[in-house]
Simulated scan of single mutants.
Amino acid sequence: MRSAQPAAAQTQGFAARALLCLQLLTLAIGALQFAFVPASVSQPMLAVAALGLLTFSILFARIVPALQRPLARQHGVDITSLIVCITLFAIATGAAHSFIVPLYLIPLVGAALAFGRWWIVLLLAAAIAALGFLLGALTPQVDIDTPEFGVRLLSVLAPGAAVALVIAALIGQMHSAVQRISDLASTDALTGLLNLRSFEEILQQEHRKAERFGRPYTVVVVDVDNLALINETMGHDAGSQVLGAVAAAITRSIRTSDVAARLGGDEFVVLLTEADTAMGAAISTRIRNNVYAGTVSVANRLIRANVNVGTANFPEDHLYPKELMILAEQNMQQDRALRRAPE
């Protein structure tokens, strides 16, 4: 069953803005190096090429649509461009002796903010350490085979890697917390299905796609029969167990692309994506049979639930989601009237 939009995606915008700030900070530091310490730039053309490459990358990653979705792709381009820019600028300003080398902290922090995964930070730190040895090899009178060079490189890179690992752990916990909050806000506490507000948002999204691509979909309303009688005779705990069993049966009956929600009280609603009238009727029958096939044990008594089902299809029945839900509700009431024995 499809759920509401993942909460982790809500933090990607923050990561994108943070990475942009880090890129602009790197550009600013490079420009200040030119402006106030020009003697330290031994290869001006290479330094200009590094800053130009980073500037182009910033614009390119935000203009080309293919690099913007998913945002993780844009983050990867941003972090790669940062590492390349810092490496080239370091070569242009003294290689291993460059004041720019500590700026490798910036892509490490960017990776932690963007992905929130400690192992990504560790892999990136290993790659940057390899670049550190490359810078050492390009620096005159520096022997990268000595323990002194290794200790020096470690003292420069390890603090940044440690900070990035802490940030990655915090971001990972934040993602988990945001996801839990989103789940609580979008689901029904009793059944675990979506609540009505979240369902209506997804229904509107599916309706727009159906209109654009000419695809059908079906709305199904399910009503639990005689739930009020169960609550009165056996208690509300029994009624809650029945609702949970019905929700589980609905979940088993639908496809992973479909969406189920609790309307409230004893009613549920299901969105069957890309389902015509015949498929909607088949899945509705499956829901009814699966509910009836299950039982709930309450105080050594087995309760078998029954449901009434009504469907409405787009575009065959109506053109608007609200109308489809109303029509499905009316068809469900007709189904209930037909199945009840006359008094």
Rank of each mutant, 00 (worst) to 15 (best):
P107Q: 15
M332G: 10
Q12E: 14
V41Y: 06
L54A: 11
N300P: 01
N306I: 01
F133V: 00
S42K: 04
A127G: 10
A28G: 04
N289E: 07
P140M: 09
L46M: 10
F149I: 13
L327W: 13
L51W: 01
L103F: 09
L108G: 12
R69Q: 10
V84T: 13
A9V: 12
F314C: 03
Y320H: 13
A125R: 00
N313Y: 14
A185F: 09
T11V: 13
G150M: 11
G132Y: 04
A161M: 07
S257T: 15
R255I: 10
L134R: 02
G132L: 03
C85E: 03
I91A: 03
N331I: 00
S81V: 06
G172K: 12
G13C: 12
L165F: 03
L131S: 00
T191Q: 05
A248G: 11
M332N: 09
S297D: 15
I120V: 15
D183F: 15
F56Y: 07
L103D: 05
G244L: 10
I250M: 08
T218E: 02
P315G: 07
L123D: 01
L19E: 01
D188Q: 10
L319P: 04
A31P: 02
N313T: 04
P216C: 14
L124D: 00
P321C: 12
